[in-house]
Design a protein around this nucleic acid. Sequence first.
DNA 1: GGAAGATATTTTAAGCTTGAAACAATTTCC
DNA 2: GGAAATTGTTTCAAGCTTAAAATATCTTCC
Lengths: 173, 173
Amino acid sequence: MRAITETAALDAETRALERPRDHTSELRLWLRMLACTNMIETEIRRRLRERFDVTLPRFDLMAQLDKAPEGLSLGEISRRMMVSNGNVTGLVERLTEDGLVERRASDTDRRSTFVRLTPDGRAAFRQMADEHADWIGELFGDLSADDIEVLLDQLGQAKASVLSHSKKGEGAR
Amino acid sequence: MRAITETAALDAETRALERPRDHTSELRLWLRMLACTNMIETEIRRRLRERFDVTLPRFDLMAQLDKAPEGLSLGEISRRMMVSNGNVTGLVERLTEDGLVERRASDTDRRSTFVRLTPDGRAAFRQMADEHADWIGELFGDLSADDIEVLLDQLGQAKASVLSHSKKGEGAR
DNA sequence: GGAAGATATTTTAAGCTTGAAACAATTTCC
DNA sequence: GGAAATTGTTTCAAGCTTAAAATATCTTCC
């Protein structure tokens, strides 16, 4: 074991060469971002359930379909929602039971199924989407327009950094 | 049905009085924040599984215990992790099977159980935590120290706004 | 045309997560 | 002291989520 003085003398060198960099501020940023997102998500889930008896994943899936009136394939939904294929299979199954979406076979590819909102589903979604937008506006209500622009921009940079250092972004690195 | 001119004339008034405010930028902010968080979370889950064969919830629970060497009650873990009580019961059960944590009855309250890391659990966690910190540092690697400070500050404001407008923050409003 | 590879979806097993109901023990307050 | 409210935990049913394996179909390329 090294003497104390020797240890102290090596300290700077150790930090520079062997020790990983200090990531305290990045960790704090990550934890804060996560806490912020979780708080919003929890509150939105609660309101969707209380007000419309619907879950967030179902709302999200319907939101994708609302933007594509002609319908989407299961795979395309999976990509846009950034969830697994099997997940979408189950969600569509349950939404179909509720009469909110409907499936139809593709004309050109017999492997593929398209999904779209039923009229009921569309009406239900529109009502939920309106309130949802109000909720988000309310939750962020104490931020100024400038705050929002700054956050949007900074989060854009963060997103780009994460993408370029994660597996998903490997091709683009 | 109203004539076109009449509709146009009422437009400004409608926007001001009946229509909810436009929340487009808040919605964009929310979607971007969510996408950013999800990308990081997905990548961290993937690495924890590949590298240590551990799930994120188990890692998070061990992180709480690492900060409290004397152990925590199940309820306290649940509050700190912001998840339901039943969730913690199950996680602790599985971590106990793996020999990473251990339970012991409270001396003062017979309803309560404390949980703490085993020596094995602590050693395993320390190794994971070191790599985890490096990963976060890497993912945020393209951000400057200033970027991080700004984001930390802005997210702090966002968090405060969300808290004061959600059920959790009702007492503090 | 047909083999080899790619793509779209489903199935499966395991684990995570929640809200609500049920218990048990403690605390509060008459 | 004891009823009533609170607190700590577990159980339960339902739904979400994933990775991996299995199927089915399509495309590419010889």
